[in-house]
Amino acid sequence: MTSLRIYVVRRILLAIPTILILLTIVFVVMRVAGDPVSAILGGHAPAEQIERIKEQLGLNKPLYVQYLEYLWQLFHGDLGRSMIWGRRPVLVEILEHFPATLELSISAFIVSIFIGIITGVHSARNYNKPTDHMLRLYGIVTYALFIPWIGLILQLIFGVYLGWLPTSGRIDTLMEPKHITGLYVLDSILTLNIPSLISAIRHLILPSITLGIYLSGIYTRLTRSNMLEILRKDFITAAKARGLPEDTIIYKHALKNAFIPILTMMGLQFALLLAGAVLTETTFSWPGMGTFLAERIFYRDYTTVQGTIVFFALLVVSVSLIIDILYAYIDPRIRY
């Protein structure tokens, strides 16, 4: 086996205890956070009804049995059933809303990386010049902005005054492409549905820029500081002494070396991306996980909330796993 493959297998095995700890924390927190029975029945239900519901939900069993059953269910991909609205399986509900969030997150992520890296590299290249000072300011200001505020400003300018772009929803009514992945842009491309594609992209622009700007500042600052550090290294001087073109040195030699901390940040930012997506979704009436979760918390739908948290947690773990594998791919020194 190659060293890269050994590394990947080892890293996957290490993710198992992480997931177990995560699931345990979710289990404990959900037991502490309140009584689902009174949430369903209200405060003054008769005792036998409370017992019936407890039995239905399995809450009358000893805690360790509940814990093992919970793990056993998760292991089989079962996140339980919603406590309201026809008791639909939680996983089905999540999968209905997740594509919208995923689509928004991916495009916001691309926007933030793109803006962040370009501004960061530009800032480092113009070290201590006016451009650098402006971009550093950008890096700090965006981080302090409030997502709904950015969203409202963009909606006002591009939606209301200029009338160029829609300010809410994912797509124009009756334009939904045939459901394949649930990502409207991807589905429109797959079905060669041009009008849907245009509509989906137009709806995606403002929310992704809102979330993208918010997340980009940290990449600006991180890229700048790492680029400055790398540009001082001997191998950069050595590359210059070999007469390599400046763009080759900046992008091929320096940026690639500066990329590992940026990649780490992408992993760390992923949780923030999901949280930011919740705020962006409510600002733009985007029918994703954020809107869904906010609604279910309001109705105290414990099983759905628990299932959603588990889902998010597993997602964050998988992303950090992927990031770790990417490190090894980029930097050969990590494989050993």
Partner: peptide
């Protein structure tokens, strides 16, 4: 030790 690009 530091004059070669470590990723190349």
């Amino acid at each position: 030790m530091t004059s070669l690009n470590p990723l190349m």
